[in-house]
Design a protein around this nucleic acid. Structure first.
Lengths: 339, 339
DNA sequence: TTGTACGCGTTATCAA
DNA sequence: TTGATAACGCGTACAA
């Protein structure tokens, strides 16, 4: 087992200093004399030294690893989220070990074991497969994003407010019947707030509301048949009334819009639509779709920040068991489907 | 510096066996007696032992880390690619350390140093900022994907063939004037092949061809003005001729389609469009867009496989300097814009 | 300011 | 089949 790498030992031999001095050169340069520093600096270049952070980790006990388990990068929301999370590496110096959950419980549990065996300092859990009770027992800091979070700290969008904003926008258009299309969410899911928010504002405004809650997938082919059925139902049932439709995500909203356009060749004035997420498709659609924007950069920032704080506290030995659920404001983006 | 973790030492004390035996229990169970195995197995559970792979790495010299530097996850192609790359972790046991390049040379060089200091065994380079000559001098295996690759092994889509397929599809529609809209690519970029392929088939078919090559960004707002100008030019210049337009990616193709639809309220028969990538938008558009599909799962699979092979060879001490450029076939997906 | 000696948790070598 | 001991590369009391 020949190891080609240059180590402190070689540098020590080469320069005549001890390993300790070299270590100090890296970790506390001021404790080393100017002269020594110059000599070492030169030697490092000459020998082409590369630091070995893994050895450092073993000695110090702290990696700068953060584990990330994310459901599916093909969904724009998660890709965007990971983008922003990874961008935080420059600020905190964290290295992100990323796994994709894909809803596979066994795999995700394996990933977590893997991550623990690499001494990740914290876990950013975006996947929703593993219950938060299990996550809470991991003995490393965990922050969840937009998922069930009863037993861990979390960051979520203000879904409730999002639901209200959507209802308000549709009501402002003069819609007479309010419709919400969403998956059959469980109340523990943060996104459930969208349903409640929408429902509540409709009630307050005394507007009739109907909810279509059954899960449609993420892909166009899966969504289409479901939306087609819903469309046919709505069309027949609310023939002469102004319909305000709040769809739980922009991809599905776009499918609905397409069905409407294919049917009428235009967007009739009695169909109003609001999507959710403000993903690119809402802008890229022939008729740009109004949507509720989540502040993904801020969600990511807050999540990493909270994780960093928890990691810091854990280092200090504090056993802070209080949970904090961070709610990030959302914003209504008005486009042509609510004009 | 209290370390709470259970180590081989504790297990040794607890069971009366030596650290060596315990190590063997993990790495070569057959070399340990049945009885011992059972005792250890029980002890491990009782003490709730978690393996420390970092220590293992230090002793064995091999991490299972692969570094990934990817340009921008917000572009669907890269998100999809990373999806498939991460999926390979189950097969190879690799852990992926992911950084986002964002075209920042200095940052990317820092990421590479970071990765090297964590002893990644290989690098998957998708970002195109750092020239392949620099990558070749890294002394770890490197595979690039869809970028300049003169000095390293790589995996690319068959861009040339893609260009030809697009031209053929448009010619088959009876187009009289062939138009290609693309960024102002450099010949070293694999995507340059699209231009050549398209140009060549047009020449072979003796069809007049015009190329609009100036970079338009990735975002809708950036693309729109550029496409609008191009549209106006084409419309005026080729008024009564059947136009076949090959756009370098689906996002831009969709923008063009939207402009056409906004102008004519329908897709006139003398406008035919083919995009590239077969990204979701090509399917999600009101009028589904024909496109050239890249086999992203295969690209990722081959890339990781090639990297694994190179890593294996390096372990055996082979200094294989031969370069291999793996070209993955593409496929024409006919949709409504070429009917 | 610099060096000695030991520890971090695992694997490898050699011996029993 | 098992164990003692020395690595792996670096950090850190403690001493000089």
């Amino acid at each position: 087992m020949k190891r080609d790498k240059v180590t402190f030992n070689e540098i020590a031999h080469y320069t005549g200093f001890s390993k300790t001095t070299i270590s100090r050169y890296f970790n506390d340069p001021d404790s080393v004399s100017e002269k020594t520093r110059e000599q070492l600096s030169a030697a490092l270049k000459k020998l082409n030294y590369r630091e070995n952070k893994l050895a450092r980790v073993l000695a110090k006990g702290k990696t700068e690893f953060i584990g990330v388990i994310i459901p599916d990068l093909q969904m724009h929301y998660y890709a965007r989220l990971l983008t922003e999370i990874l961008a935080m590496s420059d600020l905190y110096g964290y290295k992100f070990l990323v796994f994709q959950g894909r809803g596979n419980l066994e795999a995700e549990e394996r990933y977590i074991r893997e991550l623990l065996s690499y001494s990740v300092e914290g876990l950013l859990m975006v996947s929703h497969t593993i219950p938060s009770a299990s996550l809470a027992s991991l003995d490393i800091p965990v922050i969840t994003i937009e998922r069930e979070d009863r037993h861990v700290s979390s960051v979520n969008a203000d879904n409730y407010c999002g639901g209200r904003l959507a209802a308000k926008a549709l009501a402002d258009c003069g819609c007479e019947i309010m419709i919400h299309i969403n998956a059959d969410l469980k109340p523990v899911s943060p996104a459930y707030g969208r349903i409640i928010g929408f429902r509540n504002l409709c009630a307050e405004l005394k507007l009739p509301e109907e909810e279509f809650l059954h899960s449609f997938g993420n892909k166009y082919e899966e969504i289409y048949p479901v939306m087609k059925t819903v469309f046919d139902t709505i069309r027949k049932k609310y023939k002469d009334r102004k319909k305000g439709i709040f769809v739980s995500n922009d991809t599905a909203a776009n499918v609905l819009l397409n069905i409407i356009l294919q049917t009428y060749r235009t967007l009739p004035d009695d169909w109003k639509i609001v999507g959710f997420d403000d993903s690119p498709i809402s802008q890229e659609a022939v008729i740009p779709i109004s949507s509720i924007r989540q502040d993904i950069p801020r969600i990511a920032t807050e999540a990493v920040k909270m994780l960093a704080d928890q990691i810091e506290e854990k280092k200090k030995g504090k056993h802070d068991t209080s949970l904090y659920h961070n709610i990030i404001p959302v914003e209504y983006i008005g486009r042509r489907t609510t004009q």
